[in-house]
Amino acid sequence: MLIAYYSLTGNTRRFVARLVPPADRLEISAHKRATEPFVLVTPTYNFGNVPATVERFIDNNAGYMVGVIGAGNRNWGDNFAKAGRIIAQQYDVPLLGMIELAGTEEDVKTITERMRELE
């Protein structure tokens, strides 16, 4: 399954690299278009916000989004991976997981299993 992701610091990019092969990755920008169903991996910025680039990408591609994974830092408390929760609720897609920074091997295993259930 295609994984569309946004990464400024490289954490979500490193996580996605452990999740799927290169052919199944799409590093997003505001103007990229998806042509098949995808799971979105998004960081959370500014203490709980969806990055603006991710918002613009979703505006152009929401019809293909089948799930979301939120990323963040547990130091943010209730705002940890909040962008994923916001998107899941707003677009009525499943939240497949919340990862800290680049995720753990257990995160990779769990999310891979959840993605298989979507296929």
Rank of each mutant, 00 (worst) to 15 (best):
K109C: 07
N79L: 07
G63N: 11
Q90L: 10
N11L: 01
V68H: 00
I28A: 03
F80R: 02
V50H: 01
A34K: 07
G10R: 03
E105L: 11
T112G: 15
K82M: 15
Y6R: 03
T110E: 14
A30T: 01
A83S: 15
T104G: 05
N79V: 05
G48L: 01
A102P: 09
I3Y: 07
V93I: 14
A62R: 13
I99G: 01
L26G: 02
M98Y: 02
F38W: 05
G63A: 03
R56N: 12
Q89P: 04
L118R: 12
G77C: 05
P51W: 01
G70F: 00
E117I: 06
E106Y: 06
G97D: 03
E106Q: 14
V66W: 02
N60K: 08
A81T: 01
M98T: 15
D92P: 08
N75L: 10
E55R: 02
V16Y: 05
N61H: 04
H31L: 08
T35L: 11
N73E: 10
K82W: 06
D78K: 10
F80I: 05
E55W: 00
V66D: 04
G84E: 00
L40M: 10
D107Q: 08
V16T: 12
A30V: 02
N49V: 07
F15R: 02
L26M: 13
D59E: 14
G67I: 06
G63H: 04
D92H: 11
V50I: 13
L118G: 13
I111M: 13
F80D: 08
M65E: 09
L26T: 02
N61G: 05
P21D: 08
V50M: 04
G10N: 11
N49C: 14
W76Q: 10
V16H: 07
G10D: 07
T44E: 09
G67F: 03
L8K: 08
P22F: 09
M65S: 12
W76P: 04
A71G: 15
I3R: 02
G77T: 05
F47I: 11
T112I: 09
E119C: 07
I69A: 04
K32A: 14
I111P: 09
M98G: 10
G10E: 05
G77F: 06
V66T: 05
G70I: 00
V20C: 11
N60L: 14
L101W: 06
V54W: 00
L40I: 03
N79I: 02
G67N: 07
R74W: 11
